[in-house]
């Protein structure tokens, strides 16, 4: 028995049989064996392409050409590229704002849904819709709702006398930036609400009851008990969601293609635009790879927090 095994039952208890059966019973044999498929898939289809991608970003690769190593030239060029700077700015802005909103509204929704009222099952299922619908198509539907000519939202506000002219949601810099954040938030709320709902279910009811008996108000209970207990969930939900938001492509590409001007350009749209449409594969790869350090920091923070929580 290896010393890393969790328990060390007496050897007399182990099953006998062929060496194969005995081998399978050893954690140090069975463990790697069971983990192998996952490792294989990730190595072959993720790690290897990633290494290739890094190599491309360090080369002058163009679509269809033979790449030559150019060191950090692509990255240095990005540093002077004003469009890239705009993309960096909006990527951060987009991610921070939409994550913040998703988190708070998702939590709010979870708190509401964490009760057994009439129709709570239906409400929980409906809530998931935005997350289930194909992004491209829900983006198209949103495109109609925010259309400068056909927006049903503008129409309603006009009828209510709140505005005098249809709102130009996607044609002006800040409205466009904010609109995309709202749509991203719309798509992500169910994920947070779901996660938080699970997190809330895991909190022992006795804890809350005890606090109530002590006379604590609901805000105090939330701040002192619920929220601290939800922190580990928050970290995990946030880290995965952030990764999705940063790597999100469909939504922006369908709705604005990075416009107006370059106001809604993000890492992925710019990388795609440069590498695929413009053919500068090396530069596109550099844009894409430049995200990874940021993501790594996030991942490390997330990992630290969850491990310390134990």
């Amino acid at each position: 028995m290896s010393d890393t095994a969790p328990v060390s039952p007496g050897p007399q208890a182990r099953p006998s049989g062929s060496w194969l059966r005995r081998a399978f019973d050893r954690p140090n044999v069975l463990g790697p064996l069971l983990a192998a498929p996952a490792a294989l898939i990730l190595l072959l289809l993720l790690a290897y392409p990633l290494v290739l991608g890094i190599w491309l970003s360090l080369s002058n690769a163009v679509l269809g050409g033979t790449p030559k190593f150019v060191g950090l030239a692509n990255y240095i060029q990005l540093f002077h590229d004003s469009t890239y700077r705009e993309a960096v700015f909006y990527s951060f802005f987009y991610t921070i704002c939409s994550e913040g909103l998703k988190l708070s509204l998702g939590l709010g929704l979870a708190l509401l849904l964490n009760r057994r009222f009439r129709g709570y099952r239906l409400a929980r299922a409906i809530m998931l819709l935005p997350w289930v619908a194909p992004t491209v198509l829900s983006a198209l539907a949103w495109g109609w709702l925010l259309n400068p000519q056909f927006s049903a939202i503008s129409w309603l506000l006009m009828k209510l006398g709140l505005i005098h002219q249809y709102i130009d949601f996607l044609g002006q810099i800040w409205p466009a930036r904010i609109s995309l954040i709202v749509i991203n938030m719309w798509r992500g709320i169910p994920y947070f609400a779901m996660g938080y709902l699970a997190g809330l279910t895991a909190i022992p009811a006795s804890l809350i009851e005890a606090a109530q008996i002590d006379g604590a108000g609901s805000w105090t209970i939330f701040r002192r008990i619920t929220w601290p207990l939800l922190l580990p969930v928050t970290t995990i939900l946030l880290s995965f969601s952030t990764i999705w938001t940063v790597t999100d492509f469909q939504l922006i590409w369908t709705m604005t293609r990075g416009g107006p001007l370059n106001a809604t350009q993000v890492f992925t749209t710019l990388a795609y635009q440069r590498a695929i449409n413009g053919g500068s594969l090396g530069q596109g790869a550099a844009i894409a790879i430049s995200v990874i350090p940021i993501m790594l920091i996030l991942a490390i923070v997330a990992l630290r927090t969850t491990r310390e929580g134990k």
């Binding site: 400068p148 130009d168 949601f169 002006q172 604005t256 416009g259």
Partner: peptide, 14 residues
């Protein structure tokens, strides 16, 4: 007409 700043290829048709 206001809002052409966001127009993609479908918008003018519509």
């Amino acid at each position: 007409i206001p809002g052409t700043g966001s127009w993609l290829d479908v918008n003018n048709n519509q």
